[in-house]
Design a protein around this nucleic acid. Structure first.
Lengths: 353, 353
DNA sequence: TTGAAAGCGCTAACAA
DNA sequence: TTGTTAGCGCTTTCAA
């Protein structure tokens, strides 16, 4: 009954015990194969006795399908990434794929990792908020491997991407803060090298300029809580500190809140307005009560899945740039204007394959 | 130069182009194989031209080593799990393994998932805070697959586990709150079915009883922020609300803080003491400033790696139960007694293989 | 140092 | 419905 011999049980062992051919064993474990119930039963019995389970490795070799999707995430301290990964991995598992995970440090070079991923013959690669070198973009393209950037765009339009409308979000926040009567605005950027941060800033600053607002103050928070805390302290130490701060993501907004409320004892929403970007769950907690721009996480993942399905089904599928609308979530960390600006642009619907 | 034919490039294609045998190609991509530099160079050249990379699938089939470790996590909303996964996946990547990730819903049955994992021929399984059915424990054992429970124990000693001293932590918190002169203590449990929660509660309650304290109030918070918020509201609605609440993890403690500070306007550490368990990064933020029991995350992951190394190197390695010491992190959410109790038990050192 | 040849455990024709 | 056979792309003897 037990084995103890370290040689793993193969379909031949099962075949011998069940008194059938090896291919019968294969069929017994294949969904919808033509096989008699009695045979399948015999095989399963024998398999259970021996502790046999089909090897996906051998199967992959012949079917040329690994059932693996490579997922690259930039560390999981940012709850938005953690939430994205969680939702994505569930959805992928649901459709029968397994996730080969790579957690990177934020400034790692992804190329060596991607090289590894490709050797595993993943059927697609999803990069969460990470950038793809043009070299690897080319490598993936020529091996016909679908690549999907989630929460990030790429200059070259050779890979698909899903983002929400960062520029529009930044602009809407400008309108919102102006409507609230704020005088001295500030922006805390993620990183200067990040296109995501730049888009949000561009939308914000351009709209402000259009409306004739004064120039803003600006700091960089390195996308992190700590970085944003330091940035906020610098901002507030100014001779004319801002009365409103827009942070390029929620983590940094919460960092700002921690300094302004926790360290300085100010009341956010009255003494100063803080606005974030992402709408992570934490922002809704009473102690933060963060006004923010919501990125439609569920729709982003749904679109990711739809795009992947399409690319997996049909190779040489054209890359898709999918941009989803977000929306302002009004909570208490920023003053609410008497008359709210109209945010109803014409939002793009989620991508459907 | 390019291919366009969807058939993936194999070592034969490279061999032909380079004018060598297929086995030469294999050697050119094998660390420390006996091959002339000139040959290796030719092969790499040809490989680059064709966009060839060795298939781990084919290699795995013959070497019987997948280089894959299955990692099961119970969802990533809890930052402690996210941090654990992050650290673990880095360490595993470092030692040349890839992570096959499964994110479960908290009350999912892990068995069907594990069945899948085994078919991928993972070389070990790490289960983060998830339980293993005795059936699967047996299955893994008989296929000689190392299993490691991280942040969880198992009744049967057939699999390895790494935990911190939950009972001791609970007891230390009892001492700490008693020393602070608190009268009416409360405990918010994770789940009644969770051994982790029970251990922390047992340590807490037994020490309280030893010291002749009054019986405590008790609620269940479902390990979640929302659950803990509801539990805290129930607790505080009592005719004699507690003056100190010990929560079975930090997420729940932060939930309690959100209700007590954010909703009720109390001052934690003065009006009421809140203590958590885990020491997630968030607890240190000024707005929470959470007093808590630290689980030694880094050491837990280091021990996990050490144990895995041992089990991967030598099959039929005996399972190890590793319990690491934690420590109290004094911050502002709980009153600090004039005289601090002595917490210096004799802590177990981290496991070394 | 190289090449020829034999599999790793399975799927997928094909024939019976 | 079943068994026979030929690989999937690689590593690894074994001879040369």
């Amino acid at each position: 009954m037990a084995d103890s011999s370290r040689r793993p049980v193969t379909s031949y062992d099962v075949a011998k015990l069940a008194g059938v051919s090896q291919s019968a064993v294969s069929r017994a474990f294949t969904e919808g194969a033509k096989i008699a119930d009695s045979t399948r039963e015999k095989v399963h019995q024998a398999a259970a006795t021996l502790g046999y389970r089909p090897s996906f490795i051998a199967r992959s070799l012949i079917t040329r399908r690994s059932n693996l999707i490579g997922v690259v995430v930039p560390g999981l301290v940012n709850p938005f990434y953690a939430a994205l990964l969680d939702a994505l991995s569930h959805a992928l598992n649901q459709m029968g794929y397994r996730v080969l995970l790579f957690s990177m440090l934020q400034d790692d070079d992804t190329d060596p990792i991607l090289e590894e991923v490709l050797r595993h013959r993943v059927e697609a690669v999803v990069m969460v908020s990470s950038s793809l070198s043009s070299h690897f973009s080319y490598e993936c393209q020529r091996s016909g491997l679908p690549v999907l950037l989630l929460n990030r765009t790429n200059d070259s339009a050779t890979v698909s991407s899903i983002t929400s409308d960062n520029v529009g979000g930044g602009a809407a926040i400008a309108d919102f803060l102006l409507a609230g009567g704020h005088q001295q605005l500030a922006f805390i950027a993620g990183r200067d090298s990040s296109s995501t941060s730049r888009d949000r800033e561009t939308g914000f600053v351009q709209r402000l300029a259009q409306r004739g607002a004064a120039p803003i103050m600006r700091e960089t928070g390195d996308w992190s809580l700590m970085g944003a805390m330091a940035a906020t302290r610098r901002l507030m130490a100014s001779s004319s500190p801002p009365d409103a701060v827009f942070c390029a993501n929620d983590m940094m907004a919460i960092g700002a809140l921690n300094v302004i409320v926790g360290e300085m004892g100010c009341l956010a929403g009255r003494d100063i307005s803080i606005v974030g970007f992402d709408d992570i769950a934490m922002g809704a907690w009473p102690l933060f009560n963060l006004t923010t721009w919501q990125q439609p996480l569920t729709e982003m993942v749904a679109s990711a899945i739809a795009i992947l399905r399409a690319q997996l089904a049909q190779q040489d599928c054209a890359p898709v740039q999918c941009q989803l609308p977000g929306k302002l979530i009004l909570r208490g960390s920023a003053r609410i204007p008497a008359i709210l600006p109209d945010f109803s642009d014409d939002p793009l619907p989620p991508y459907r394959a």
